[in-house]
Simulated assay, not measured.
Amino acid sequence: MTALLDTGLGLFGQAALVGFVTFLRIGAAMALLPGFGAAMVPMRVKLALALAFTAVVAPAVSAAVAPHTGTVEGLLTCLATETMIGLSLGLLLRLMVLALEIAGTIVAQSASLSQMFGSGGEPMPAISHLLVMAGLALAMMAGLHVRIAGVFILSYDALPPGAFPGAGIVRTWSIGHIAHAFAIAFGLAAPFVLASTIYNVALGSINRAMPQLMVSFVGAPALTLGALVLLAITVPPALTLWLGTLDTLLADPFGAPG
């Protein structure tokens, strides 16, 4: 009985160490994950979510993690490497939310809607809040939690535990995804930029033709109304396009962006 108990305690201790090393990566990523790492989510909820993801991921990656839990040096090394890898993964996925925030900022500046609808939470224009909340709700309904768990499991093949990723690989990977996020943001906001440019050019031409007309009193309400109509028309397909891009990223998070 004593030998059986010792064996059970040994297995439990090994499982606890594997869970701890896995938690290092997941806990660091949890601070930046879309939706789960938002500022409005309480810290206790984030901790519970990190433990839940750890319970799901740890059994699938125990073979890769276990060799690094046998020594104190291995655990200390994992304390640094896993935290860095987790932050890198969280930032990669967070870029998709930042793309919506940037798109909302461009829309707000182009359409004079910066102060409408109110705002709260993280500092950003109100249109950005609208796009981010709608995008995250759409992603959650599409099973974002399941896809993120899959990304964590795949990350142990692409970024093995106990080793820092190469600086050149991280630089190329991060710059590519950051540029891709800006491209997505401008693509989503392009209809508003184009419509605003055409409208202001037309308004300037009218002002030159009829200097006595108070174009600011006529143009500002029309610009706001047109922006609201364009927002209602373009946001649903834009969010669908964004969700497809997010699905592509989650399917191959370690490949070239595009």
Rank of each mutant, 00 (worst) to 15 (best):
A103K: 01
G120W: 04
P67D: 01
G86V: 00
A64E: 13
V65W: 02
G118T: 07
M84T: 12
L49V: 14
L113K: 05
A60D: 05
I85E: 01
A64G: 02
T83W: 07
L91W: 11
C78R: 06
V72T: 12
L47Q: 13
G118D: 01
A108L: 04
E101M: 11
S114V: 15
G118K: 02
A111G: 10
S114M: 13
V107H: 11
G86Y: 04
M84D: 03
T105G: 15
A103N: 06
M84S: 07
T54K: 00
G90L: 03
V97L: 08
L51V: 10
V57D: 07
V57F: 04
V57L: 02
A103S: 15
V107D: 05
G74M: 05
A60Q: 14
A50F: 09
A48I: 11
T77H: 03
L76T: 08
A48R: 13
V107A: 10
C78K: 01
L49I: 15
L89V: 09
A80D: 03
A60L: 14
S112H: 12
L87C: 07
S119Y: 08
E73G: 14
L49K: 11
A63S: 09
T77K: 09
V65L: 04
V65M: 05
P67S: 05
T83A: 12
E73W: 14
A108D: 03
L92T: 08
A52V: 07
M116T: 15
